[in-house]
Design a protein around this nucleic acid. Structure first.
Lengths: 159, 159
DNA sequence: CCCTGAGTGCAACATTATTGCGTTTTGTTG
DNA sequence: CAACAAAACGCAATAATGTTGCACTCAGGG
């Protein structure tokens, strides 16, 4: 399974900038960044695709040079998701760094079934429509999930 | 956790009509309805909320009077979802009978965090927008997932 | 009758996630 | 700084969810 991206996420500049922005965003809200949390952020930013919790654990175990237990991973991921600097891909039981931590927005994920990579897009119109629909039926929305699974452009060409 | 619905799904007429419609839809496509599949459909239609796979297993074990193994449940659920007569709520690892098996449409689920019930709505505009977004980035959509979690109207009043 | 394919049963196992509790770290307050 | 409280973390155990591989049954078609 190749990684047919023009600008891979493993580009170090993008990673370090993304992590830095996320760290700032979290600190601005008065929450703390611990070594574990920062390492997790970095691992997610460096990953070529959404990572499962146990996959993240393995990577952290390696970079931190010590065992990291499942509950720690889940707590860390919960924290990062609450802070809006990471997101859970429900259809995959996986987690990605969120590219837009700055504002509370709806993330739309396009998840490729072939290469496993996910792409995040934004669409304010979609966000608006969803809000309207919820309001119409008197539903108080707390969390919105929009995911598409299918084939990304490079994988379509490859098949 | 009460079930504050005006017309509970356990209303026998609605259940049997829903099941009947689903069975017809499946048969029209040349797929077979087996006793297990029909029992699962009935259980999902009768349920007051989305059921986990193992919850469904327990209910089937009771109604069928025999043990039903996990793989059978998952196979049955996969089948029903592929046929469009059931759907998986990703944010809950749960399954619901789909109220609109007649056409291939986008299901939007509103899942209440308090009572656990889910409501399915349709919005062709949403469907259209999502399609546009995917097309714009060259993504070939196979499955669309739109879920909101929050509080349903009755549970808002109750709190 | 034999063959085939779909559906099912079953044991074992894999993956994902949580609970409870004790310890460490961090931030706050006197 | 000392004492305390809250947050974060480690760890063992366990729960919940989902899968694999293989054998068996059963219906339909040669």
């Amino acid at each position: 399974m190749s990684r047919p991206k023009a600008a891979p996420k493993s580009c170090n500049r993008a990673v370090s900038e993304g992590v830095k922005a996320a760290v700032s965003a979290v600190r601005l809200r008065g929450a703390q960044i611990t070594p574990l949390r920062e390492a997790a952020l970095k691992a997610l930013w460096s990953a070529e695709r959404p990572l499962g919790a146990y996959e993240l654990r393995d990577r952290l175990t390696e970079t931190l040079g010590r065992a990291v237990a499942a509950p720690s991973i889940y707590r860390t991921l919960d924290f990062l998701c609450e802070q809006g600097v990471a997101a859970r891909i429900e259809s995959r039981n996986a987690y990605v760094a969120c590219a837009h931590p700055e504002n509370d927005h709806l993330c739309v994920f396009l998840v490729c079934e072939a290469c496993g990579d996910s792409r995040e897009i934004e669409d304010p119109r979609l966000e608006k429509l969803i809000g309207e629909d919820a309001r119409r039926v008197g539903f108080a929305v707390r969390r919105r999930i929009v995911e598409m699974s299918g084939l990304c452009a490079p994988c379509q060409r490859a098949s």
